[in-house]
């Protein structure tokens, strides 16, 4: 079956501020934290949420041995036009789950963009006022709710609440797609965590 069908990508160059990008319907999200915090998984749910909402998406993880106990990050692009470079140099939304990531990436966020930070682990505030800052004690909330491994999903809920790139209905579909078929029981706890973050007012 010689398949000569090769897909062609047309790319728009990215506008310069987060607001311009939202008009262009492009979300460039950077998830960053320690390996083992579920950074790659939240990125995957975000990408599926985009896909389920009929958007173009890409997901790019950091890889290699530096991930062992070290930092992990994941670049997710959700756009109404095909994704060019999958690398997020200047995020519209930064989800920071540890201090090193926060200090490293804070400066790169686009003007008007969002920083969502796990305030249980990051006690400092951003050094700039041209972005929106949303601290949320995700790790603390997760341990209070006795779902210690799901701080990533709590903070993801907050991301959905502030950036609105998907509805909660779509997010549910995305979670269903992202958990392995053998672990269906995880869907509800993940949703519980996401909802907690979504409804968090702080």
């Amino acid at each position: 079956m010689p398949s000569k069908r090769l897909n062609y990508i047309a790319i728009r160059f990215m506008p310069h501020t987060a607001a311009e990008r939202r008009i262009a319907m492009t979300y460039e999200i950077l998830f960053a934290g320690f390996g083992g915090q579920g950074i790659l998984f939240s990125g995957k749910v975000a990408a599926y949420a985009g896909l389920m909402g009929d958007m173009e998406v890409s997901w790019l993880p950091s890889y290699g041995p530096e991930m062992r106990g070290g930092t992990a990050n994941c670049h997710v692009i959700i756009s109404d036009s095909p994704v060019g470079s999958p690398i997020v140099n200047n995020p519209t939304d930064l989800v920071a789950m540890n201090l090193p990531s926060f200090t490293k990436f804070e400066k790169t966020v686009l003007t008007g963009g969002n920083i969502i930070a796990d305030s249980s682990l990051i006690s400092i505030k951003p050094d700039r006022d041209d972005i929106n800052f949303y601290p949320i004690p995700a790790t603390q909330m997760a341990s209070d709710m006795e779902i210690p491994k799901l701080a990533n999903m709590i903070i993801f809920g907050k991301l959905i609440a502030v950036s609105k790139f998907a509805t909660m209905e779509t997010v549910r579909k995305a979670v269903e797609k992202s958990v392995p078929p053998s672990k269906k029981e995880l869907i509800e706890v993940n949703m519980k965590a996401i909802e907690a973050g979504y409804n968090y007012i702080g």
Partner: peptide, 16 residues
């Protein structure tokens, strides 16, 4: 290359 190998995008597979 490493970027293409590691990144995820939506795909559909032809029926074979």
């Amino acid at each position: 290359d490493g970027m293409l190998g590691q990144m995820m995008e939506p795909v559909a597979f032809p029926d074979t």
